Amino acid sequence: MQVYSFKELTQPAKKQLYNYITKSGWNHYVETYEEMLQNYGGVLFNFGESHFSLWEEGEILGTMGCITKEVTHRGEAFITGINIDNTERYADCFKILVEKCERYCISKGARKISLGITPDLEFLRANIESFGYRYTHRILVMKYCCGEDVSTQNDISREIFFEMLSNQNKDSFREVHNEAFRHSPNAALLNDEDMNGMLEACKENPGLKGLCLYNGRPAGIYDLKLKNKIGWIETIGVYPDFQGHGIGKALLKKSVDILRASGAEEIRLFVIDVNQRAYKLYKKFGFEDEGVRSLWFRKAPF
Results as ranks from 00 to 15, higher is better:
Val30Arg: 03
Tyr4Met: 11
Ser114Leu: 12
Asn169Val: 06
Asn205Pro: 00
Glu56Phe: 01
Gly48Met: 09
Thr235Glu: 12
Val3Lys: 11
Leu124Arg: 13
Ala91Thr: 14
Met1Gln: 07
Arg277Lys: 15
Leu190Val: 03
Pro119Met: 06
Cys145Pro: 01
Met164Trp: 08
Asp194Glu: 04
Gly286Gln: 06
His177Glu: 05
Glu266Ile: 03
Met64Ala: 11
Leu165Asp: 00
Leu189Lys: 13
Thr80Ser: 07
Ile79Ala: 11
Lys95Met: 05
Ser157Cys: 08
Met36Tyr: 02
Ala180Lys: 07
Val271Gly: 11
Phe181Leu: 12
Leu17Tyr: 03
Lys7Tyr: 06
Leu165Gly: 01
Asn178Thr: 05
Gly231Tyr: 08
Gly244Arg: 07
Asn46Asp: 15
Ile247Met: 06
Thr10Met: 06
Arg158Gln: 14
Asn154Gln: 13
Leu226Asn: 02
Arg174Ala: 14
Ser166Glu: 03
Glu49Met: 04
Gln16Met: 14
Asn46Phe: 08
His183Val: 09
Lys143Val: 14
Glu193Lys: 08
Val98Ser: 05
Ala126Tyr: 09
Leu281Thr: 00
Ile230His: 02
Glu76Ile: 11
Phe297Ile: 04
Cys145Gly: 06
Val274Leu: 04
Ala300Ser: 15
Arg74Asp: 12
Leu165Gln: 04
Phe6Val: 01
Tyr4Gln: 12
Glu148Thr: 09
Pro301Gln: 03
Arg182Asn: 01
Phe123Leu: 05
Thr87Tyr: 05
Ser157Pro: 06
Gly231Glu: 10
Lys227Pro: 00
His73Trp: 13
Lys280Trp: 10
Gly237Val: 03
Lys249Ser: 10
Gln168Arg: 05
Ile84Gly: 14
Pro240Val: 13
Leu9Ile: 05
Lys14Met: 10
Val256Leu: 14
Arg103Thr: 10
Asn27Met: 04
Ile156Phe: 08
Tyr33Ala: 05
Pro185Asn: 06
Gly244Glu: 13
Leu211Gly: 06
Asp92Ser: 00
Lys7Pro: 00
Gly244Pro: 08
Gly263Trp: 02
Gln16Gly: 11
Ala278His: 08
Phe297Trp: 12
Met195Ser: 00
Trp232Gly: 01
Leu44Pro: 01
Cys66Pro: 09
His51Met: 06
Phe52His: 15
Gly25Thr: 07
Lys284Ser: 11
Asn205Tyr: 00
Arg293Glu: 12
Gly216Met: 06
Asn169Met: 07
Asn169Phe: 05
Glu288Arg: 15
His245Ser: 13
Asn86His: 15
Asn275Ser: 12
Ile221Cys: 03
Ala110Pro: 09
